[in-house]
């Protein structure tokens, strides 16, 4: 039987961590773009997008992420579309992130006083100008802590991709465990790696929050 050193285990896990990071980044970016589009739809005149966004958000927040992943990974091939584990995980996490970020950001935009809309409208600004120059810069400040909070959530959610066989950190942990039969050490290391990713994020969000709180903010 081959013995694995701690260094072997660690390097194997760290290589798989790249996929966890990549999946998180893609889902966050994709979700961010999706959420921004939903948000513009929600506030644009005429206001038809509100109901649509609401339905989407409810649907994705009201069902388990694991189920969404199964639907895409096992469901799409039934429709004749072949999806790899990476593609399935990417689609599922992006759709999921879109729903949550849209809801978080909607709350932040709604928190901007109505007077800001009134004042910018009375100056003749268009909807896009109002959003870009007046509403979003202010909403951004209050959006950072909950957004980074969700990013942490998203990083941890990528572990679900291991179930459809995507080789990210958790899957790598399982593989190692199957070879070494040392679940406590293996999964402890896996947990520590997740923590090492998430902790700096929360810390960073707190610093950003402090730096972005301007002299001019009420």
């Amino acid at each position: 039987m081959i013995e694995f050193s701690l260094a072997d285990i660690l390097s194997f896990l760290l290589l798989a961590t790249r996929w966890t990071l990549a999946l998180s980044a893609i889902a966050f970016l994709g979700g961010g773009i999706g959420a921004l589009l939903l948000l513009l739809l929600r506030y644009a005149r005429p206001r038809v997008g509100g109901r649509l966004m609401h339905l989407y958000v409810e649907l994705f927040q009201g069902t388990p992420l694991l189920l969404q992943l199964f639907l895409i990974f096992f469901g799409l091939p039934k429709l004749g579309l072949d999806v790899s584990p990476l593609l399935a995980a990417t689609i599922a996490l992006t759709l999921y992130a879109t729903a949550f970020l849209a809801e978080i950001w909607r709350g932040c935009v709604d928190a901007i006083p109505r007077g800001q809309w009134d004042a910018s409208a009375s100056l003749g600004m268009t909807f896009v100008q109002q959003m870009r120059d007046v509403i979003l810069p202010q909403a951004l400040k209050i959006a950072i802590p909950p957004t980074v909070g969700f990013l942490v959530q998203l990083v941890k959610s990528t572990a679900l991709a291991s179930i459809v066989g995507f080789h990210e950190l958790t899957k790598a942990g399982q593989v190692i465990n199957n070879a070494t039969f040392q679940p406590f050490i293996t999964y402890s290391i896996v947990a520590l790696i997740y923590f090492a990713i998430c902790y700096p994020l929360t810390h960073w969000s707190r610093r950003l929050e402090r730096r972005l709180s301007p002299t001019g903010h009420r």
């Binding site: 006083p113 007077g115 004042a119 400040k141 001019g216």
Partner: peptide
Amino acid sequence: ELIRREVGMVFQQFNLFPHLT
């Protein structure tokens, strides 16, 4: 938008943009 350019408005709560100088 055309009409709003010709009509200026001042509000009770000032409504200045707090993130801008």
